[in-house]
Computed example of a mutant assay.
Amino acid sequence: MGAAAPVNPVNPALAGIDALFPGVAPLPLGVAYSGGADSTALLMAAARRWPGQVQAIHIHHGLQAAAGDFVGVCESVCVQAGVPLHIVRIDARHTAGESPEDAARRARYAALATAAVAHGLKGVLLGQHADDQVETLLLALSRGAGLPGLSAMPVQFARGGVMFYRPLLQTPSIVLRQWLVQLQIPFVDDPSNTDERYTRNRIRARLLPVLAQAFPHFRVTFARSARHAAQAQAVLVEVAVQDMAAIGTPPAIKALQALSVPRQANVLRHWLLLQHATPSTAQLDQLLHQVAACSTRGHQIHLKVAQGHVTRLGLHLHFTAAASAR
């Protein structure tokens, strides 16, 4: 826990909240509150910004022995701040072949959405900050991601019928911690955040300090690049919607061939995503090759894409999901 003599405490989180909600916020709001520094700062800032209109939601994963200590700190802080606290216990264990991080993330968002609906909340604030955004961008680069991945984390999104907001994406983690220390507000450090078996933790421990030495303002510039990527991706989605209207659903092969190859790739990716199928780069390249070669009525297409197959039926492409994916 951190504590020190208060010195002119300021609230860096309010700038992010005010920028995200320059007018009237969708009150009441929930805050995903883990007990860590980032979510604690967000909870305190939101409670000061909207007194009596903020509730904390703590997701108890039960994945580590320290989880009980987190609950104790959350209860103490919320009592002192006069903020209602809802503790939700979930089973976040992953199945064989599933990423532990992905399994925990899906379970956490589902639980947050359910709790928000149950308590009449109009949205949920998340404590991801500028360092998290940089880590997400670097992970995407390491995987050779396209614009959706390079867009990193969106400022807001919907899940389970609930709006989620990230007002701290422009605020470095150290600024949040310093503010809490100034206010003598307790928080906990999750021991799993230093476990370098996880790629994100290795980036945080080894790469970010080097970047800070070489490029002191990298958090700001990397976040700006992510915003540019998100804007470009939004334009591509608009173009894809227009092209889908032109080629039809399912896609007409002749109409598809009339588009440039980059637009074919863009609209095919969009079409497949609508089928809940995410094609790999190799699969999409092969599909484009097959579409280009489809110049006779007898040319067949039968290509595995994600958890299903793209086939040619007459003059159109069709996607059939595997039975296990339905």
Rank of each mutant, 00 (worst) to 15 (best):
P191E: 07
V175H: 15
A107M: 01
H316A: 10
S173Q: 14
I174F: 14
I185W: 06
A323I: 08
V237L: 10
H228Q: 15
L315T: 14
A212T: 00
D195P: 00
G314D: 05
V83C: 02
V117H: 13
A252Y: 02
S324I: 10
V7N: 05
Q170P: 12
V162S: 01
L139K: 12
Q213H: 12
D102E: 12
M44F: 08
V77I: 09
P22F: 04
P154C: 12
G35W: 04
L272A: 09
L207C: 09
F218A: 03
H316T: 13
R312V: 13
V24F: 03
A25H: 00
G2M: 05
A277V: 01
P51I: 07
L150W: 00
V71C: 04
R227Y: 02
H60D: 15
A66I: 11
N193K: 14
G144P: 01
D91Q: 08
L313E: 13
P250T: 08
Y165F: 11
R49S: 03
H276K: 15
P167I: 02
T136S: 14
S173D: 13
L287F: 00
Q307K: 15
A56I: 06
P167A: 06
Q283E: 14
G308N: 12
P209I: 00
I87W: 13
L112K: 01
A103R: 03
G97T: 03
D195E: 06
A205E: 10
P26T: 02
D189A: 14
R106W: 09
Q133D: 06
L288E: 00
Q80L: 14
H299A: 15
A111E: 12
A113V: 10
L43M: 12
L138T: 04
H316G: 09
P186Y: 04
D38R: 05
S99T: 05
V261T: 13
H129Q: 12
L112W: 07
L125W: 00
R224W: 10
L168P: 01
V239D: 08
D132A: 08
A104E: 04
P279Y: 02
A41Q: 08
T40A: 06
P172D: 04
A145S: 14
V241H: 08
Y165T: 03
V261C: 08
L315K: 11
L150M: 01
H299E: 11
I247H: 02
L42D: 05
E75T: 15
D18V: 02
L125K: 01
G161V: 09
G97K: 02
E196Q: 12
P154S: 08
G146W: 02
R263F: 00
Q156W: 07
Q213N: 09
Q53R: 13
Q307A: 15
D195G: 04
R177I: 07
G68Y: 00
L284E: 02
D285N: 13
R197I: 01
Q64K: 11
A66L: 14
Y33H: 04
E101Y: 08
Q307I: 07
S142N: 13
G146Q: 06
Q300C: 05
H60E: 12
I253A: 06
A246R: 13
Q275N: 08
Q128P: 03
Q275F: 02
Q80M: 11
S173E: 15
I90T: 07
D102M: 04
G314Y: 07
R159G: 11
A234K: 09
M244L: 15
V83I: 04
R143K: 14
D38V: 10
A5M: 11
T311L: 14
P262F: 01
A223G: 11
R177S: 07
L126E: 06
A212C: 01
A45E: 10
